[in-house]
C-alpha cells in the first residue's frame, strides 16, 4: 500500500510538471511552480541535514575511543568558527568572504596541483606498465591532444597541412562528446519514464 501511494505521488508530480511545461500560463503552470518551490525547500533542508550529519560523524570520531581521527577536531573547530562568524558578521561581510574563499580556494587549488604532479609521474610510467596496442593508441592520442589544446599546433596554422590537421583533430572531441550527450539524454528519458510509471523508485531504496 505504501509503495502504491509513493508511486502515485511521484507519477502525479511528474505528470503535473510536464503538463505545466506544455501549458504555460495555466493553472497547471502554477501548480508546477508550487511543486518546484517545495522541491527547493526540501533540497535546502537536505543540505542542512547533510551538514549536521557530517558534524555528528566527526564529533563521534573525536569523543569516542573507536575510530579516532585526529583530523576531526580541526574540522569541528573550523566548522564552528565559520558558522559563528557567518552568523555574527553576515554572509556579505568581506572578512567572512575572504576567510572562507581563501581557505577553500587555496586548499582546492593545491589539491589540483598535486593532481598535476601525480599525472606527470603516471605519464612517465605509462609505457613501462603496458606495451599493448590500446596503451600505444591511448598514449599517442594523449600526446596529440596535449599539443592541440595547448595551442602549440595553432602556431603552424599557416602551413596548409597542419591547418587541415588541426581542424580535423578539433572535430574529434566534438564527435565523441556528442555521442556521449545523446547517450546521456536517452538514459535520462528512460529513467524519467521508469520513475513516471513506477518501475524505478529511487525514493523507496533502503
Amino acid at each position: 500500500m505504501k509503495k502504491i501511494i509513493l508511486v502515485i505521488v511521484s507519477s502525479l508530480s511528474g505528470l503535473l510538471l510536464i503538463l505545466g511545461l506544455f501549458f504555460p500560463g495555466t493553472i497547471l503552470d502554477r501548480i508546477r511552480i508550487y511543486i518546484l518551490d517545495w522541491a527547493i525547500i526540501v533540497g535546502a533542508i537536505a543540505l542542512a541535514i547533510a551538514i549536521i550529519n557530517l558534524l555528528s560523524v566527526h564529533w563521534n570520531k573525536v569523543f569516542t575511543n573507536e575510530k579516532r581521527d585526529y583530523a576531526s577536531p580541526f574540522f569541528i573547530v573550523g566548522f564552528v568558527t565559520v558558522i559563528l562568524i557567518g552568523i555574527l558578521l553576515g554572509p556579505n561581510n568581506q572578512f567572512f568572504v575572504d576567510l572562507t574563499s581563501t581557505t577553500i580556494i587555496t586548499v582546492e587549488a593545491s589539491l589540483l596541483a598535486v593532481l598535476a604532479l601525480t599525472l606527470s609521474l603516471a605519464s612517465f610510467r605509462f609505457f613501462t606498465k603496458k606495451q599493448n596496442l590500446l596503451a600505444i593508441v591511448f598514449g599517442i592520442s594523449t600526446i596529440i591532444f596535449l599539443l592541440l589544446f595547448s595551442g602549440i599546433l595553432s602556431l603552424g596554422e599557416n602551413i596548409p597541412l597542419i591547418k587541415a590537421l588541426n581542424n580535423a583533430l578539433n572535430s574529434l572531441p566534438i564527435a565523441g562528446s556528442t555521442g556521449i550527450l545523446i547517450g546521456i539524454s536517452l538514459g535520462a528519458i528512460l529513467t524519467s519514464l521508469r520513475i513516471f510509471f513506477g518501475f524505478d523508485r529511487p525514493y523507496d531504496r533502503k
Partner: peptide
C-alpha cells in the same frame, strides 16, 4: 601551459 604540455609529452615518450 605550453611548456607543461611539452613536459608531459616528454614524460610519456621518455617512459616508453
Amino acid at each position: 601551459l605550453q611548456l607543461g604540455a611539452i613536459v608531459f609529452v616528454f614524460y610519456i615518450l621518455a617512459g616508453g
